[in-house]
């Protein structure tokens, strides 16, 4: 079942980027007991997102866009957030299928 933060991130990304592919993956269980595990079960996430908004943007710019859209979540409310952000034309094959 999706947690509260996971839903919040999904909603923010959906609204900001109109993605053709969006995956918000909760990796927290894999980091159980690790120093960043705050016991909420929502400490580690991976975001996989494909959106036309990223076309022509550098890797750095794409991650900055995602971080900005998520406000105080990355690094503060979530200990670790891995981001894979692509434009439709450069998305790897495992992310190129529709949502």
């Amino acid at each position: 079942m999706a947690g509260e933060l996971e839903r919040e991130m999904r909603d923010l990304l959906q609204k900001n980027f109109e993605p053709s592919h969006l995956n918000v993956i909760n990796d927290s269980a894999r980091h159980h007991g690790h120093s960043g595990d705050d016991g909420t079960g929502e400490s580690h996430f991976t975001v996989e997102i494909v959106s036309p908004h990223f076309s022509g943007q550098s890797r750095l710019a794409r991650q900055r866009m995602v971080n900005a859209a998520l406000g105080d979540i990355p690094g503060q409310r979530v200990h670790a957030l891995a981001i894979r952000a692509f434009a439709p034309e450069d998305a790897p094959s495992d992310l190129s299928h529709p949502v």
Partner: peptide, 25 residues
């Protein structure tokens, strides 16, 4: 860096990115 997470890589004074960007590059 205007970047919310650690690690962060700098090369010759220029911010490159975090571990996802390092891995992709």
């Amino acid at each position: 860096s205007d970047w919310p997470t650690i690690p962060q890589l700098y090369v010759k004074g220029e911010f490159v990115g975090g571990s996802d960007i390092m891995m992709e590059m």
